[in-house]
Amino acid sequence: MDEISDFQLVESCLEGDDTAWKDIVQRYQRLIYNLAYRFTGRFELAEELSQEIFLKIYRSLKKYRKQRGEFKGWITVMARNYLIDYIRKEKKNWNRYGGTDELDTLDYKTDDISPYGHVEKLEKIQFVHRCLGELSVDLRESLILREIEGMSYDEIATQLSAPLGTIKSRINRARIELARIVNMRRLSGAATGDFGRPTEEAL
């Protein structure tokens, strides 16, 4: 049986069909959750933001038109905008979530690595994300879009409404500052053992 198209689901949803909305959630929760995780590096926060993003999508469904393109692209752009706004608003609370204890309670599912390797990898990501939180908002959002979302400089300039030269300069500074912060935190973590559980490699 052919899968119902996204557009059909949206139409049914607008007519009040709860099952259609449930199907949309099932179909795209992984995409949104991973996007939120890549932006924040925190499981609990990614979960909370995923809920908020889906709520926003739900409230904006009537604005979706097929001629605007793929539904997947539409919700990705909406989610990305939401996450950028979040970074700008929540700069003070960036590090409030996610002790490394979070890692112990998760059900890891990826295709190619052992559970041990997975935990180590996630710890590294979380550690670098914490360091990322020490950058200014301008530098952080530019770097996330470049390194994590893999966007081109032109796309980032459009997304953030800033000149191309400014974006290149921000990314350059962000890379340098982040490298220094990571280095410094690894050294202090090695001394106190209380920051981000740096890996053996890092020590």
Binding site: F43, D107, V128
Partner: peptide, 12 residues
């Protein structure tokens, strides 16, 4: 590290 972020299963 950033480029190697794994694709995670969302919580059930």
């Amino acid at each position: 590290i950033f480029q190697d972020i794994p694709d995670l299963a969302p919580p059930p």
